[in-house]
Amino acid sequence: MLQITGLTVKYGVGVHALQDASVDVPEGAVAAVIGGNGAGKSSLMRAISGTLGFHAGRVVEGSITYDGRNLAGLSPQKILRLGIAHVPEGRRILGEMTVLENLRAGGAIVRSTRKRVNALQEIMDRFPILAERRNQRAGLLSGGEQQILAIGRGLMSSPKVMLLDEPTLGLSPQMVERVADTIREVNASGVTVVVVEQNAAMALGVATDGHVIERGRVVLSDSAAALRDSPDVRRLFLGGDVDEGLGLDAAPASLATLTRWSA
């Protein structure tokens, strides 16, 4: 569905953020893109959503196609209209505005008021926490709640693909699990998800496919299961010892505690 081929992204004069990167995201998948700080993950997301320009970056080589359609040179609005929503790094909640207004902003491209209102109701049904806090200033929400808001906001435009940039950054382990569940839910409802993360354990836990980026290059691409078992990945990201246990199966216990979070 989403195909990135030989992508090279530059910022300014000499800085290559991505070099000859190729990632294939099949429809319905959850693709994890993992790598350390500054590996080029965010650049990949920005290139897809057309927002490199805001950071003085540009695509120098390669192509991004979505459903066969080349995304080169399209405005962020156009790309969103095609069905790709980008939930940016750091959540970028509009703190001064209420939760409700943030969601409405997310529905900006939805032309029909009825559709927008329906989408709003749907999101609030799905994420009761948002319904509960709908008139609160978004800046007052906790980190985890803000991430849910950011995802809900992204869903307002009924996208077919959702790009999540470091959704678990700065969150407590319980919230990390909550976000992971949310991703699974979203994917189950028919949205293809690309998750970019430093937290490889979480990302590979929800993903179907995985890609490892290091210093602007895609060094590994495989199914998530294969990557989970790969000794290289384990060493680099998952803390070494195979037998240590990564908490990927810990879902049931944490889910019990997390019911507190949804209304």
């Binding site: 805001f54 405005s75 969103l80 980008h86 940016p88 001064e96 900006a108 906001r153």
Partner: peptide, 19 residues
């Protein structure tokens, strides 16, 4: 909403499809 969002954060507003 679009105006206020753009005033606060132009980049994110663009991401949300606000021209």
């Amino acid at each position: 909403v679009k105006l206020r969002a753009s005033a606060v954060d132009a980049e994110t507003s663009s991401l949300l499809g606000i021209s």
